[in-house]
Amino acid sequence: MNVVSRFLRFVQGDSQADRVVPPTGYSARLTVFTAGAMAFLAVFAMALSLAADRLADRWSDALARTSTIRISAPLAELEAQTWAVLTVLEQTSGVDSARALTDDEQRALLEPWFGPDLPVADLPIPRLVEVVETAEGYDAEGLRQRLAAEAPGAVLDDHTRWRRPLVEAANGLRLLGWVAIGLILASTAAMITLAAGSALAANQGVIKVLRLVGARDNYIARAFVRRFTLRALSGAMAGTIAGMIAVALLPRAGDEQAFLTGLGFSGLHWLWPLTVPVLAAVTAFWATRIAAFRTLGGLR
């Protein structure tokens, strides 16, 4: 309760106390601009991090429950081996469903490389069977052995080989996003410390008068801290709103779910950027407070 009332008193301020420090145009503009620019970048870093998070989840969840069987056999035997594979899969515990991809689906998969109208039926292209697992999953090694016996041309690919580096890459991107947010906050703190230091140095005469009339360091520091915190808050709010609009205007994800087109917020994730102005204000509060007490400590 005490913390809340102190916070409310801080936000409400004291109109008399606020006036004792003259407004300084340069440091005010610098603080507002820095906070705004940093908040804009933080929103993008947050969008990157959350998009990477979704991607990692999708790759690790969705791909973990699917696998592919590739059947390479002479055209005359291909149909028989496909049936044999589907029969094995029907009898395999842990397989939810399995189906052979149609010629049209295989043609669509190859279209990016060979163009449209590829005569799939006339080419020695392996037949693909998509397997969807149950939550428990199947015994991959047992299935491989049965396939080897029933359909010698069938090879099971459970996606493990290429899924792992993709998930690792997505996790790396997510981490990179949060590191970027940390660096943005640290840079904001550094810039505001410089601006506050400059304002304190420019107002040494004011500080001298305030001390002469009995002002405590806490009172003097508070006058500067409140001003810089509110400037950082207003700048960061503007930067956050601009960043959210920019993210909202990015192209939406297409059917291919490409990463760049999926950069953005979804659902409740839109609430996350609202933490940016709060973080900026808290950073400005502490940066200015530390700078103020250090400067006041150096002045007799």
Binding site: R211, L212, V213, G214, A215, R216, D217, N218, L296
Partner: peptide, 9 residues
């Protein structure tokens, strides 16, 4: 410094 501020009042 707080003591001094108080004395200056």
């Amino acid at each position: 410094r707080d003591d001094i501020a108080k004395a200056r009042q």
